[in-house]
């Protein structure tokens, strides 16, 4: 592994490999239960709703909306405060943590429910992070 970032580098586990292989290809992958239809994240090889092991990968649209966030003023490796730590809700349903980039890191530019689209940032040869940017110009 050759880190190209000072950010915290995840360690891939067998159950999460498909997710990280996806982001390397520019794909945001979640899982779907073929028994009950539940779409879920984070990864595991069975459905957290009904325990079925009949699951498949879903390739997400990359569209999301801003569910909630903080603007961190705390020092963090690889970040220049202030920066947003956000929870986004994917169009497909599940939520995940990310950073909203590509706009001022201010309350007036980070509006709840605003539309976002996934972008990718390389942390190392193995790890590409999914980040989000606004899809409409914020006035």
């Amino acid at each position: 592994m050759h880190p190209t970032s000072d950010k915290f580098i995840p360690f891939i586990t067998p159950e999460t490999r498909h997710f990280w292989e996806g982001t390397k290809l520019g794909e945001l992958r979640i899982q779907k239960c073929d028994s009950c239809g539940h779409k879920y994240f984070p990864p595991r090889p069975f459905c957290p709703k009904c325990s079925s092991k009949d699951i498949s990968l879903v390739l997400c649209s990359g569209e999301a909306k801003l569910y909630s966030y903080v603007i961190s003023h705390l020092p963090a490796p690889g970040f220049k405060p202030p920066f947003s730590i956000a929870v986004v809700e994917l169009l497909e349903g599940p939520r995940l943590m990310s950073n909203v980039i590509g706009c001022p890191q201010t309350p007036s530019s980070l509006l709840l429910d605003m539309p976002l689209a996934v972008v990718y940032e390389k942390l190392s040869d193995e790890i590409i992070l999914p980040l989000f940017k606004p899809t409409e110009k914020i006035v």
Binding site: F8, P10, I12, S72, G78, F83, M97, N99
Partner: peptide, 8 residues
């Protein structure tokens, strides 16, 4: 470690 810490 995988789904929160990388975001600062």
């Amino acid at each position: 470690g995988q789904f929160e810490a990388p975001f600062g």
